[in-house]
Amino acid sequence: MRIVMLCSSVYSETACAVAVRLADMGCTPAGALSVSTFNRGTLLRKLGQWGVKRVANYARTKLSSRNTSKPGRIQNEHLEPWLTRRHAVFQNLNQVANVYRFPVAITQDQNSPRAIAALKAWSPDLIVFTGGNILRREILGVPSLGVLNVHLGMLPEIRGMSSPEWSLLNGVPVGITLHFMDSGIDTGPILRKYEFPDLAHCDSLADLRHRLIAFGVEKLGDVVAALDRGTIMSTPQCDRNSASRGDNQYFVMHDWLQERAATLLAQPLRQPVSETVHG
């Protein structure tokens, strides 16, 4: 099976881990298409969000991480099994690509005609999405099987952003869903979903996210293998009415609510916090 990866940056640890996971199971990507790390939009956005000082720090971090002679530090320690090779750490996707011999292309926009042409040239059966732009219909139609995404929440209950945090506050099991992408936000057909078994070991929301990502990398390999064998079928989601208030799309959680969600890590609820007041 020919697999192509989409990623948000060549410095994405998740993208590196996924590439290694796929390569280790004999499905080395045919190529990877990454969004450019520095572009005008990102720079202006970060300036507006963070201010000049933090942007300068961010740029310095990014530039220093390009220096491959320095030993790297892994942000998500749970990805270590895939990112470490003989005491060296993969710093970016280019290094992974050098070892496993696949091309990496850079684009400003994954939906651009040039990006789509590059993807088509790799003629993928499957695209694995690890981050990047919101994908338009045209790109979704490129692979014969579909575009695979790991969502950090149980679909269809929790769609969209901050899914682990919303799961905690809403008393929904924390887990991941592997699904094909369609034009909606996390509305595509579901391949597999897994409840996360190690919630009790998480000491912060960041730790939970890191563990969920690693859990997702592991399970992604299983699902890709099952797709390759043809032993897995996708199931459409029933709740797809995004125009109604009854939809399950969630948005980035405000810090104040995140702090409350963090208190529920050790002691997950069986119903939403608000229900205890509002019935």
Binding site: L169, N170, F251, H254, L257, S274, V277, H278
Partner: peptide
């Protein structure tokens, strides 16, 4: 949020107020 208990209303209001 007070009437329905849907936390997404509270979340959006917190952001809007910021």
């Amino acid at each position: 949020f007070e009437i329905t208990g849907d936390l997404r209303y509270l979340n959006a209001a917190l952001k809007m107020n910021e």
